[in-house]
Amino acid sequence: MMTQRRIPQVPARVRAAGYLRRGLFWLAVIAVALYTLLPFAYAISISFRTNAQVLVSARYLPEELNIINYQNLLRDPNFMRTLGNSALVSSITVLLALVVGSFAAYAMGRVQFRGRMGVLYVVLAMTMFPQISILSGLFGIVTDLQVYGSPIALILTYPIFTLPFTVWVLTSFFQGLPAEIEQAALVDGATPFQTFRLILLPLTAPALVTTGLLAFISAWNEYLFALTFTLVNRSAQTVPVAIANFSGYGYEIPVADRVAGAVIVAVPLLVLVLIFQRRIIEGLTAGAVKG
């Protein structure tokens, strides 16, 4: 309203500058959108071409919508098993992180006790822990426990990055809840654990969904441990390892079918992210900005 009224009053030169600015702005918006979306769009485009076509020439758009790559992959029991492994490992990791992590977060966010700051520091330091530097130590633990080459090795080791993060984010959520809740519960005669399970946990359900999603994404994407601990056993591999070591269905170098596999791996995550984008952004900024 305001601007519309004002526009006739400004000189033509300024109006032109305004159009130019708007044009530049939309150019910038389009550039950002293209930059973020084009590579993946190209991945979808290439996945509809046959491998032979891809190895001959580059095209922006596929000749035809050929779904042979997807058919091959979805009919391949090995590939489907790696998808299953990924789903299994990620889900159990999330469950473990949420159950164990919410306990710890409740203790640190709601209870005043001796040693709290120490534990808080340990957890914060752990969120930045370089997994690679303990790879050889973990390798020893995994072989000692005789779970090398099985998905259990991954379920066992993934808490190293999911758990501290979960605890850290959930702690800040618990801290944000009003203090009266427990006092009321205490007056009503609830034990601390009942207060936690029946009253506070339902209140943090949104935070649990967020952190669970982030844990799921990081577990689904994890490559280093998956590669190290399941290299010997194809049937235990997760999908990133399978994609990275994909050898194709023909004799040529796999390009199109590999990218098709990559698209299949990325799609579940993209769907999750698009559905829960608001929560994810909230969770990420809570984890990073509040630090």
Binding site: V32, A262, L269
Partner: peptide
């Protein structure tokens, strides 16, 4: 736009490496 910006982040690193290798 914000949704679009989450896309590259949501794609697993291995997948983006494979994709860029093709590119």
């Amino acid at each position: 736009m914000r949704t679009a910006m989450l896309v590259p982040w949501a794609i697993p690193t291995v997948v983006s490496a494979v994709l860029w290798q093709a590119i």
